[in-house]
């Protein structure tokens, strides 16, 4: 009994998260039983069976590969651009004042509105999709990075000056590590946004991918397949978020874990 208690205590976040998912799934199952109409509502068992058969028959793999590639490219470039731009925003008041309205505006613009334009400009190959994912994800990274740089605080910059740290090294020794927690938060939020970006990009002119499969299922009124795709996307979001948190714990052991919770 004690062992289980200890396990619970050390993994309470995981336990509670799993319980939360199970609880909602149970409710979903119950609702499915109540409705009992497959063309109108589909239960978790059916979705699970559909998902398993997607993997068993191998039909899902090309879609996963396509979407995964779009995600990786778009998100990767967004991370590089976002962190660099965020740093520039944080360092220079001038840059901030000039570009802040654009940042707010672009953040509020739904990608769905821009996607057709980007398709027209860049065709229907991989490039426009990467750009759409990039645009969806980059703003979160910029905003969080520059909030981080600003929050590192005047005192730490003064510390650098007092000990004659060369200007360029202040970046690497103070500003970058100091804003790391914020950058990680930006990267986390951006994963979810980038997944949405992938789906939006595939809605316009594509012939493969998880998002494409989802919309195809919608067109053919294949409810189990549609929910199955949505579940896969959601699952990816959860895994990526938790993955980034885990990487942060390894990379930044100095972060007070109590503060995170």
């Amino acid at each position: 009994m004690g062992a289980i208690q200890n396990l619970y205590r050390s993994h309470h976040q995981l336990t509670h998260g799993t319980l939360g998912l199970l609880f909602v799934t149970a409710f979903w199952h119950w609702a499915d039983r109540m409705v009992a109409n497959e063309s109108f509502f589909v239960g978790p068992w059916k979705v699970l069976r559909t998902t398993i058969s997607l993997f068993a028959t191998g039909t899902i793999y090309p879609h996963l590969r396509t979407s995964g590639w779009e995600f990786l490219m778009g998100y990767g470039i967004a991370a590089m651009i976002g962190i660099s731009l965020g740093m520039a925003f944080g360092m220079s008041k001038l840059v901030r004042e000039f570009l802040d309205p654009w940042l707010g505006g672009l953040y509020a613009t739904p990608t769905v509105a821009l996607a057709p334009l980007i398709i027209i400009w860049f065709g229907i190959e991989l490039t426009p999709k990467i750009i759409i994912v990039l645009l969806t994800a980059v703003i979160d990274i910029i905003i969080n990075t520059y909030t981080g740089v600003i929050n590192v605080g005047q005192e730490f910059r003064m510390l650098g000056m007092a000990f004659c740290v060369p200007k360029r090294q202040i970046w690497f020794k103070i500003l970058l590590p100091g804003s790391l927690p914020y950058i990680v938060t930006g990267l986390r939020l951006a994963t979810s946004r980038a997944i949405v970006g992938v789906v939006v990009a595939e809605y316009f002119g594509s012939s493969e991918g998880l998002g494409w499969l989802l919309f195809k299922a919608l067109d053919t009124y294949n409810m189990p397949l549609m929910i199955s795709c949505a579940t896969l996307l959601a699952g990816t979001g959860i895994v990526l978020n938790q993955g980034i948190l885990a990487v942060e714990k390894i990379m930044a052991p100095w972060r007070d874990t109590k503060l995170q919770e």
Partner: peptide
């Protein structure tokens, strides 16, 4: 200049550096 050193009111230790690396901060330059 490096021949003058300041001890701050708030310790101003870099939270991402352990004790040794914080002490090394000025020396590194």
């Amino acid at each position: 200049t490096t021949n003058k050193a300041l001890v701050f009111q708030q310790a101003l230790l870099l939270p991402w550096r352990n004790v040794v690396d914080n002490i090394k901060f000025g020396l590194e330059n």
